[in-house]
Nucleic acid binder design. Structure first.
Length: 477
DNA sequence: CGACGGGACGC
DNA sequence: CGACGGGACGC
């Protein structure tokens, strides 16, 4: 009998690590009610259940005295239910008490009281992404099939006046916005827009292009779906909780002494990211593995990419220079981590002839450790908004960090962007220079990058589903 | 076979 | 008199 709370609307959050427990799901589904101290939970249940499924009613009481504070929260399963209740019950009285209720949408738990004048403004606008070709009229038409639209405002580039591919859809009522929010296709990524002047927007900071296309530094371990919650019971090292401390101790002995010698060599001009393939017990999660390899400076990525056998995983570890990668391999290969579970580490692409050599400088792998075919030197990138002359479609046989891909494709000049589609092993590469794109395609198609095969094809033109399917849609009034 | 991201409003 | 508890993962 539970409502499905994991509809497509929550897809974004689910795929991220640590969805904020303070956020109401779905958004705007919890009401904040200012009422009379004499109102009891039963009064609210009686008056509010007709609007939908109530998940929780909380009559706030003083922590110490237990006195009713005249505040109640009601959590509905759906935004539209909360919207109906808000519109219907605001200003009404319930039970035999004459105090009128003030019914507002509850702010998320972490942002405290807002008490803003323009409450209404928070309920009636959706912010969406849309094709850059869509006009205000198109969107008004489209969204009118779910609820009456007041107006649509495209976000436009200041100079060119072109659409930036975002829009605000304004409705006259919370309920209308809620209906559209729940019913519009997922590709609009609709969310309730923050009122214009508000600074409380706490979206992920979007920075267009990475600080550097070459670097994944700071990206941190990516949620490893399935490995994140790994328990430490199989870690006999200092008893679970001391897992990391155990390694710090280890690091403090001989490791750091050698490290200083290693650090002195870091000024070498060679700075190609270098990839290690690691076989690691599946009782080690990605975060633990990250911390281990992060002991050696220069770690860019550490990602569990696939199961190797039932007891082990294969991980990809990338340093921003070959020396660090070789050093990591020399120091950590064969290490029991945890005890009884040896790490197996090889430099990617060197599986053929990796004889141990005392001088790791001499077997510096350069680029062929990332890619099994020779790559040209890194080339200048095109500006992120440069016109795209050629788009490539890439298919991978497994996950690869995007920084690795960017690094590889930036070996041809005029790279504009590389991205992978969410939850898929394919994506697009954009070049401002057609010859570069074609050369990249010739060299890389069928190659292996960090042990992962890649196909590189010319991209088909974008699907044209956006403009002309409007006329097929049923309108409802 | 393997196909389309993104995110904020001129004052 | 307008802002945040309780309970607890689970086949």
């Amino acid at each position: 009998m539970f409502d499905n709370r994991s509809n497509s609307r929550n897809g974004n959050r689910d795929s991220r690590r640590g969805g904020d427990p303070n956020e109401d799901v779905p958004p705007m589904s919890r009401l904040f009610i200012i009422c009379n101290k004499a109102h009891r939970e039963e009064d609210f249940r009686e008056a509010f259940s007709r609007f939908g499924h109530i998940e929780d009613i909380w009559v706030v009481k003083d922590r110490h005295t237990g006195e009713n504070k005249g505040i109640t929260y009601i959590k509905y399963s759906k935004t539209t239910e909360a919207a109906r209740a808000q519109e219907e019950m605001n200003g009404k009285t319930i039970g035999s008490l004459d105090r009128t209720l003030k019914v507002l949408v509850a702010a998320n738990r972490n942002q405290g009281s807002s008490k803003s004048e323009n409450e209404h403004e928070k309920y009636v606008r959706l912010f969406i992404v849309c094709p850059k070709t869509a006009t205000e009229e198109d969107l008004k038409d489209e969204f009118s099939q779910w609820a009456p639209v007041e107006n649509v405002t495209l976000v436009r580039d200041k100079q060119s006046g072109n659409s930036k591919g975002f829009a605000y859809i304004r409705f006259s009522k919370f309920y209308d916005a809620a209906v559209a929010f729940e019913n519009c296709p997922a590709h609009y990524k609709a969310m309730f827009a923050e009122p214009k002047g508000s600074t409380t927007r706490n979206r992920d900071q979007y920075s267009g292009r990475d600080d550097s296309i070459m670097s994944g530094r700071g990206a941190g371990p990516i949620g490893s779906g399935g490995f994140g919650g790994g328990n430490m019971n199989c870690m006999p090292m200092g008893g679970g909780a001391n897992f990391n401390n155990g390694f710090n101790d280890w690091g403090n002995n001989s490791f750091n002494n050698n490290m200083s010698q290693f650090m002195g060599m870091q000024n070498t001009p060679v700075s190609q990211p270098t990839c290690l393939e690691v076989i690691v017990s599946n009782c080690v999660n990605q975060d633990q593995l990250w911390r281990l390899f992060d002991i050696i400076p220069g770690l860019d990525y550490c990602q569990i990419v696939r199961e190797h056998d039932p007891r082990t995983n294969e991980a990809l570890v990338v340093y921003d220079n070959p020396e660090a990668a070789i050093y990591a391999k020399d120091k950590l290969h064969g290490l029991e981590y945890p005890i009884g579970e040896r790490l197996i580490i090889q430099v990617s692409g060197m599986s053929g002839g990796n004889h141990i050599d005392t001088s790791f400088i001499d077997r510096r792998p350069k680029k062929d450790s990332i890619c099994n075919v020779p790559l040209p030197d890194a080339q200048p990138l095109a500006p992120i908004d440069a016109p795209v002359a050629q788009r490539l479609f890439i298919v991978l046989t497994a996950n690869l960090p995007i920084s690795i891909l960017k690094n590889v494709f930036s070996c041809w000049r005029g790279l504009v962007d590389v991205y992978l589609l969410p939850n898929k092993n394919c994506g697009y590469v954009k070049y401002a220079d057609r010859d570069s794109a074609q050369s990249a395609m010739r060299v890389l198609h069928g190659a292996e990058i960090c042990g992962t095969k890649i196909k590189v094809l010319k991209a088909e033109e974008r699907g044209n589903g956006e403009e002309d399917d409007g006329r097929k849609r049923m309108r409802r009034n």
